[in-house]
Structure formats: structure tokens, C-alpha cells
């Protein structure tokens, strides 16, 4: 039995759930950020799976989806750079990366 589209989507969904669990249940801001990256990559996996399973004209993979993945990876790289710079600035100001100690914006 070769892997089907729903196998790939299931793996991608479980990866997304792991990332979401990290964001919801961890308290280290760096690990929360890593969970975000996992969620982005899960979305990438489902896009590439759809591109391979829905062929475009000439029996080629739908390259539009792979181009989207290219854009997502670029935006994610920029996002990581800015996010880590913010975390470093936060650490300089507060000396902690624990989100329960970062409650200055809390109402």
C-alpha cells in the first residue's frame, strides 16, 4: 500500500498539533518560537503533498504550491530573525525568557 494523500495530511496535522502543543503548554519563549516553526513546516508539508497529488497539465506536479512553500520559507526566515532579535532585546531588559515573568503588557 503506497502512502496516500490522507497519510501525508495526517502526518502534517500531527506535526501541527505537536507545534501547537508546544506553544500552548511550554513556558520558555524560545521553545514557543520553535513550536511556531513546527506549525509553519506542517503547513508546508501539506502544501507540497497537495502539489504532488493534484497534477497540473502535462502530468507535472502543481508548481504553484511549491512556489508558495518557497515564499513561506523566506517569510519564516525573516520572521525568525526579527523574533530572535526581539527575544534578545527582551532578555536584556528583563533577564528572563520565562513567559510568566514577562507580564508587563498584562491587563
Amino acid at each position: 500500500m503506497v502512502p496516500t494523500l490522507s497519510n501525508y495530511l495526517l502526518v502534517s496535522g500531527v506535526l501541527f498539533t505537536i507545534g501547537l502543543g508546544g506553544v500552548l503548554l511550554r513556558r520558555n519563549i524560545l521553545v514557543i518560537f520553535m513550536g511556531l516553526e513546527l506549525m509553519l513546516n506542517a503547513a508546508n508539508l501539506s502544501l507540497v503533498a497537495f502539489s504532488r497529488f493534484n497534477l497540473s497539465v502535462g502530468d507535472l506536479p502543481a508548481y504553484n504550491a511549491q512556489t508558495f512553500v518557497f515564499f513561506i520559507i523566506t517569510v519564516a526566515a525573516a520572521e525568525v530573525a526579527v523574533g530572535l532579535a526581539i527575544i534578545v532585546a527582551l532578555f536584556r531588559a528583563k533577564q528572563t525568557v520565562h513567559v510568566e515573568d514577562l507580564d508587563a503588557l498584562k491587563f
Partner: peptide, 21 residues
Amino acid sequence: LAGLFVTLDAFFIGIIQILVY
């Protein structure tokens, strides 16, 4: 994950996944 991209015949995406991520 890059290996999974390669099983989906997306070699370019797999390679930039390893390079960038």
C-alpha cells in the same frame, strides 16, 4: 521533513528546507 519533501518529488523544496531551516 526534507526527506519527506523528496519522497513527494519536490527536490528543490527539500534542499532549501535543509539549507534555510
